[in-house]
């Protein structure tokens, strides 16, 4: 009999075989005695730079902005990011500008992120859009470990960009999100991949005539997300009814592990707009929850 033990272990091996020596970013957020979140460990190497921690979500939360000084992702480049949020912390990680994935020969660029939120932590990982130049090939993996009561918000956005208007397409895009609980049981798996030449065919059912797409995942095991879903439903209906160049949907994730909002848009500006509106509602709705976390 062939071994097909698939629950978690095959997938988990990938998480924990990310070589910590090859990480470019390794961040750890802790809670101080006063209740505020601070960056207790930061290792950042080329191509990244990390500015000083700011307060963005709440006066006691921590916001870290990762900046890249390399001008984007290049062929054969491998980027590794690890973010850990200790119990009862509140943190936001973003970056300063869009990431360009440059034109490549036959190779790929790889990006991996491992995110772990301990119990009752609130962590946002909201990078700017990724812009795919002609023949760019990107493989991106994000792995999340959710502990009881924690919330992790992740967004992604991709734009197919053809600067010469030559009907050129990106080469390949492969985007994977895997979410586990604290016992390393698989909760959610999302895996999208497509060749640029197929994207450019504008197939009904795949991308149609849209040029950008993105997602927001609100990963929240053991949290009540019904109210949040209700408010997001209303927002999404408003956006859909007022804008013909956006298609947008929302769904509960498997194993009741949160919510996903999926967006297709005509251009990056609309995608950014929708992502920011969703985040606004999210902050309004879970603001109280953040305060509860911080004051507990």
């Amino acid at each position: 009999m062939v071994e097909v033990s698939v629950t978690n272990h095959d997938l988990l091996e990938q998480i924990y075989t990310i070589d910590s020596n090859k990480l470019q970013v390794d961040l750890n957020f802790e809670r101080s005695h006063s209740g505020s979140t601070f960056l207790s460990r930061q290792y950042v190497s080329y191509p990244f730079h990390l500015g000083r921690t700011l307060n963005h979500l709440t006066p006691t939360g921590a916001t870290a902005i990762l900046q890249s000084c390399s001008g984007g992702l290049f062929e054969h480049e491998r980027i590794g990011i690890k973010i850990h949020a200790c119990s009862n912390t509140t943190a936001h990680i973003g970056n300063a500008a869009a990431t360009i994935v440059h034109t490549m020969g036959n190779g790929y660029a790889f990006s991996s992120a491992h995110i772990e939120a301990e119990s009752d932590a609130y962590l946002e990982y909201i990078p700017n859009l990724t812009i795919l130049f002609p023949a760019a090939r990107l493989v991106s993996e994000i792995e999340v470990v959710l502990h009881p009561g924690s919330i992790v918000v992740i967004s992604d956005g991709y734009l197919s960009h053809d600067p010469d208007f030559s009907d050129s397409a990106f080469g390949f895009l492969d985007v994977k999100l895997t979410v586990y609980d604290e016992k390393r049981s698989l909760l959610v798996r999302d895996h999208f991949n497509i060749e640029g030449c197929i994207w450019n065919r504008k197939l009904s059912g795949l991308s149609g005539s849209f040029t950008a797409h993105g997602n927001i995942f609100v990963l929240a095991k053991d949290n009540d997300i019904k109210k949040l879903k209700y408010h997001l439903d209303n927002l999404i209906t408003q956006i859909f009814n007022s804008c013909l160049r956006v298609d947008i949907g929302i769904g509960i994730l498997p194993n009741r592990a949160g919510i996903v909002v999926r967006i297709l848009s005509d251009g990056s500006a609309l995608l950014r707009y929708v992502l920011s509106e969703v985040l606004k509602v999210l902050h309004q709705q879970i603001g109280n929850q953040i305060e509860v976390v911080l004051s507990s």
């Binding site: 994977k176 999208f192 059912g205 991308s207 849209f210 797409h213 859909f240 297709l264």
Partner: peptide
Amino acid sequence: SCSTLMVDIATLRPY
């Protein structure tokens, strides 16, 4: 993988 974005969104609409 499943990459049928437009189908997914069409079946995820609250409206």
